[in-house]
Design a protein around this nucleic acid. Structure first.
Lengths: 135, 135
DNA sequence: GTGTTTGCAAAGTGTTTGCAATTTA
DNA sequence: TAAATTGCAAACACTTTGCAAACAC
């Protein structure tokens, strides 16, 4: 079982994914992978960093989150208006979107199922399935 | 049955939805509701307008598409990178997203079903369900 | 020491807004 | 004619880029 409340060692998490454990990367990993799944925006991370007295820049946060996403440490989710969230939960799952709060929340796994997947267009295979329930 | 190949009268479509039938609105409705479902970006519409010798501006196309969306004539879909599409098909349906072509396509209706909808967060009701299958 | 990363400011992209001129009912 | 709409340019929000200084190995 994947335990959502295990605090992985930041340096390990980075080096295991082939990412150089630099100062701000360690700091941001520490902020994001604290044992609780999160859906954060770039601004959220900048705010969290500031609140933790981690000095960095907008560009570096973008660099870092993009790099983490490419390395498979985060999942990117784009909502209406181009609002981008980074999801720390990589297991297959879907989301509620609270329109009034502009906030994502995981849908508990294992209950919801998609039935009757239609034929795919010729020569295509499914890369991923995203379900968002707006509430 | 909703027929996707009926060419609705542009002026009627506008006035029935409480939208003033101005020149560019009629033109854009004519471009979009030609009997074939479409997923267009703002740039697409600007291109289509230009190709039809309809003189307008970026701002007016944004105004018009946003207005149509608010009035329930179009449905807005935002993809990764903030790419926005406007869908002329308002019936309940879902989409394939062709990643390499950055293009949406309707999934034929009636085959796919979502089973076991989980309990909603307290005090919430479903506003919409969006399913996107990346291929 | 060498190659990578950081962080600033500048540039880029997509979208909205202010406003005078125009159009619509 | 009064109210709404158009279209230009400027403003805006978000994201990426260029590059010199700092850092990691």
């Amino acid at each position: 079982m994947k335990c959502a409340h295990t605090h992985t060692d930041p340096i390990l998490l980075l080096s295991q994914n082939g990412i150089r454990p630099t100062k701000i990367r360690k700091a941001i990993v520490g902020l994001l992978f604290d044992g609780h799944d999160k859906h954060v925006s770039v601004d959220d991370v900048i705010g969290m960093a500031r609140a933790s007295d981690i000095k960095t820049s907008v560009a570096s946060v973008y660099n870092t989150l993009n790099h983490f996403t490419d390395a498979g440490l985060l999942r990117r989710i784009t909502m209406d208006g181009g609002r981008t969230f980074f999801d720390t939960n990589l297991s297959e799952h879907h989301h509620y979107y609270f329109e009034d709060e502009e906030r994502l929340e995981d849908i508990p796994q294992g209950v919801m199922k998609l039935q009757g997947l239609p034929k795919l267009p010729f020569g295509r295979r499914i890369k991923s399935v995203g379900i968002i329930i707006r509430v």
